[in-house]
Design a protein around this nucleic acid. Structure first.
Length: 420
RNA sequence: GGAGGGGUCGCAUAGUCUGGCCUAGUGCGCGCGCCUGGAAAGCGCGUAUGUGGAAACGCAUCGAGGGUUCGAAUCCCUCCCCCUCCGCCA
């Protein structure tokens, strides 16, 4: 949800933002509804005030006077109900439209509407060069006995994978390493619930838009999260922070579940796009003036991690029209995947400004004692599935084994992924 | 799964039976002031959220939504949530 002041006082900015996303809405009509509902509201309140005033006097009255007052108050009560009804109807009409609006777009977000419109802003290392024909993660992992797609499919169907042996230990090591790296930067590690209520998904902006991408557990009316961003954000819902307690930074670890509806035929090989994977995720609650810097900070953390993993990558400024509804601006890190011969997304960091904070009512008390919305940001630390694939494919050796980057060796306890 | 107890302005509670003096009391916490050499204690004042308004002020909110009534924290209906005990269980 965005600040209604944009509609009332800064309509041009709002129109420009919406246009950059390719989102269509009639702002003039919306403004008219807003005016009408405010008028209806204040009319109803005036009548209510009169009704209240008379109503209070009734207790002290007797006999005829009392009867007359009840009569009069009754008339106001009837009028009030009618006026209140129309004010409520207008509110509902307004909100139905207003809540579909995507966040205000950051002026520095790239122009365009599609994935291909993203603008590359930096690059690290060149695509890995091999003296032999590189394999992809399936051809590497299956012979080593560290990846098993067939059996995962047998149990669970397509888009599932199974990680075994040293690769399983590798993931554990990566997780712990990420937690250590980020807690060193002031992020508090969290292992959140992965089943959440509907309100958590609305609050973070995934509902109603992405409903089809989320698994639901009907038995208890809960939903499996696609990212720990959801619980990390929603856990502070309805809270008011002291200004001094900001920024608040968390790194969550959770399994992530995604329906991947509408991706049939896309990335069907191996474990690149699966229904279930593990991910460490950064999440920040910050002062509104600090969110731009925090976004850079999160990107720096992501780059720091990927660099330590010795994976070639490029950083992309995602096009305005390709942003999710809650993001004002988003950077993707795309890693080089030798098996695919191209760059693919492995992390993503978004500045959602006050969009989620408004929906979740997360505020802070500023130095004048006023409650203001915080800004929230999220960023992938390590998405295990894809990162393991990138590590396998980039660090493969001619004999089919896989080298472990130096930074990770203290965590894995081995320096090579092999069959043993 | 079974049985019971609850959701009130940061926290803890009063109020609900018997509708109107609830404009929601009290304690704790927090802030400011007085007092003091300084502090503690004590005393005084203030201290929920949203919304409309330039402001004065109004309106709404006692888990949520409906209903009864001139009037609902209080009565009625539906739903949600939390807790305790028993059972089961990593």
């Amino acid at each position: 949800m965005i600040d209604i002041a944009y509609l009332r006082e800064r309509r041009d900015e709002l129109a420009a933002s919406v246009a950059r996303r390719g989102f269509e809405i009639d702002l003039d009509a919306l403004d008219e509804i807003d005016r009408a509902r405010r008028l209806a509201r204040s009319e109803s309140e005036e009548v209510r005030n009169k009704q209240n005033t008379i109503g209070k006097s009734i207790a002290a009255l007797q006999g005829k006077e009392r009867e007359a007052a009840i009569q009069e108050a009754g008339q106001f009560a009837t009028r009030y109900k009618a006026l209140l009804g129309s004010a409520d109807d207008l509110d509902e009409k307004f909100n139905a439209l207003w809540t579909t609006l995507p966040n205000m777009t950051d002026p520095t977000a790239a122009d365009g509407f599609e994935e291909d419109d993203a603008v590359e802003i930096s690059r690290y290392l060149d695509p890995t060069v091999f003296s032999f024909e590189p394999k992809d993660h399936v051809d590497l992992g299956v012979p080593l006995g560290i990846v098993d797609i067939e059996r995962a499919t047998k149990m669970s169907g397509s888009r599932f994978g199974m990680i075994k042996g040293k690769l399983a230990l590798y993931e554990m090591a990566l997780t712990r390493w990420t937690m250590d790296m980020l807690s060193g930067h002031g992020f508090t590690p969290i292992l959140p619930p992965v089943l959440v209520r509907e309100s958590a998904l609305y609050g973070t902006g995934f509902f109603p838009g992405d409903r089809a991408q989320v698994y639901s557990v009907e038995q208890d009316d809960l939903y499996l999260v696609g990212t720990s961003e959801v619980p990390l954000a929603a856990m502070h819902g309805d809270e008011i922070f002291d200004e001094e307690s900001l920024p608040l930074r968390y790194v969550g670890f959770s399994t992530c579940f995604r329906v991947e509806a509408g991706t049939y035929g896309k990335d069907t090989r191996g474990m690149f796009r699966v229904h279930q994977f593990d991910k460490t995720e950064m999440f920040s609650f910050v002062h509104p003036d600090a969110s731009r810097d925090e976004h850079d900070f999160l990107l720096e953390r992501e780059e720091e991690l990927v660099r330590a993993l010795e994976i070639p990558y490029r950083v992309m400024n995602v096009a305005a029209g390709d942003l999710g509804s809650s993001a004002a601006k988003k950077y993707d890190i795309e890693a080089w995947f030798p098996g695919q011969g191209r760059y693919r997304e492995i992390t993503s960091t978004s500045n959602t400004t006050d969009f989620q904070a408004r929906r979740l009512r997360i505020r802070f008390k500023d130095d004048r004692g006023e409650n203001r919305f915080v800004h929230t940001l999220n960023g992938t630390a390590i998405a295990m599935g894809r990162t393991l694939i990138a590590l396998m494919e980039n660090h493969q050796q001619e004999d089919g084994t896989i080298r472990v980057p130096e930074a990770l060796v203290p965590y894995t306890g081995f320096d090579t992924l092999d069959a043993r």
